[in-house]
């Protein structure tokens, strides 16, 4: 043991950092694997990158991307988030009727697979070729307000968006509920003590703070929804990215390059969404000190998991 000298006080630290030889080995292995992949991608003509890029730019593919995939995601997530938050608030309300309705809703839509739900909804026209909206049992008396042609609707995008949105709301309800419960009870009490009504307290004080917890999983849900729009085919909706690329692949017998085109588009869309998610997290994390930074790290981790 060396005795510290009392006259010579230690100055700026100049020490060797910890060595990480394992990392260098890992980097070498990864580089080799990447080189192998690149070489096969370049040398094997069946990849046909040129054709894949060509497919990505085809009009039907672009239309499918914009309408079925992007619009489908946007629409179903809007329905899902809005209805999900309503369901969560209902689930946590003091009103037993609202609690029951919310419970039954989430129970049903979480139990039915999305593909099955869409296929079933697509066939509703079999039960109700024409839907009458009016007073129950009032058809004979002419008490019908509106008529909907279900068969005509069943393979329209709106109907698909509705189906995905209804399903999503059940998951969003659980996420929103967890978010609302994560807000300290003292916040509600402080708002109530100031004379704020329960609705205003929820909207102005609790939900904005719950967003911090709600946004990261909602980002994941959105990204999952981009991919789930490919299920719209269950409803015979064909204006959708994967169906359109696949159709070109089957027609030209270049199936693999067509799939690659779909994969590349999904990668582009999801990457952009992840950037948007990071921005939202920063916005709703304001006033919480270091939390946004932590959430961002969390996000990169989630991104790595997928």
């Amino acid at each position: 043991m060396t005795t510290p000298s009392t006259t010579d006080r230690p100055g700026k630290i100049d020490a060797r950092p910890v060595r990480h030889p394992g990392r260098w080995v890992a980097i070498a292995v990864i580089l080799v694997i990447i080189a192998m992949m690149v070489s096969s991608a370049v040398t094997n003509p069946r990849w046909d990158w040129g054709f894949a890029l060509e497919v990505m730019r085809q009009n039907p593919v672009l239309e499918g991307l914009v309408k079925g995939t992007l619009l489908g995601t946007l629409g179903s997530m809007v329905i899902g988030v809005a209805l999900g938050v309503v369901m969560a608030v209902m689930r946590l309300s003091g009103n037993p009727v609202l609690r029951g309705v919310s419970f039954a809703y989430t129970w049903f839509f979480r139990s039915v697979p999305r593909y099955v739900l869409l296929a079933t909804m697509g066939s509703l026209g079999y039960l109700y070729p024409v839907l009458d909206l009016g007073v129950p049992f009032g058809q004979a008396a002419g008490l019908t307000f509106a008529q909907v042609d279900v068969n005509a609707l069943s393979n329209m995008l709106v109907f698909g968006i509705l189906g995905l949105g209804l399903s999503e709301a059940a998951y969003m309800a659980e996420i929103a509920r967890a978010g609302i419960l994560s807000v300290d009870q003292g916040q509600t009490e402080a708002a109530q003590a100031l004379g704020m009504s329960p609705g205003r307290t929820m909207w102005r004080i609790v939900l904005p703070q719950a967003m911090r917890v709600i946004v990261p999983p909602t980002g994941n849900e959105t990204i999952a929804m981009v991919k789930d729009t490919s299920l719209l085919l269950a409803m015979s909706i064909t204006t959708e990215l994967f169906f359109q690329t696949q159709a070109i692949g089957t027609r030209t017998l270049k199936i693999m390059p067509a799939y690659v085109a779909a994969v590349l588009w999904y990668l582009v869309v999801c990457s952009i969404l992840m950037v948007g998610q990071a921005w939202l997290e920063r916005y709703f994390g304001r006033g919480f000190g270091a939390a946004p930074q932590k959430a961002k790290q969390e996000l990169t981790k989630i991104g790595a998991d997928h």
């Binding site: 003292g186 003590a193 304001r286």
Partner: peptide, 30 residues
């Protein structure tokens, strides 16, 4: 009941300020 509480101010042991609002926004809110 919310309306009845307007005229009664309360301060808590743990302050319970709204963390997502600035000092001014906290005061202006109600």
């Amino acid at each position: 009941i919310a309306a009845q509480r307007r005229d009664i101010g309360m301060c808590f042991q743990r302050f319970n300020l709204f963390p997502h609002k600035t000092v001014l926004e906290n005061i202006v809110e109600a």
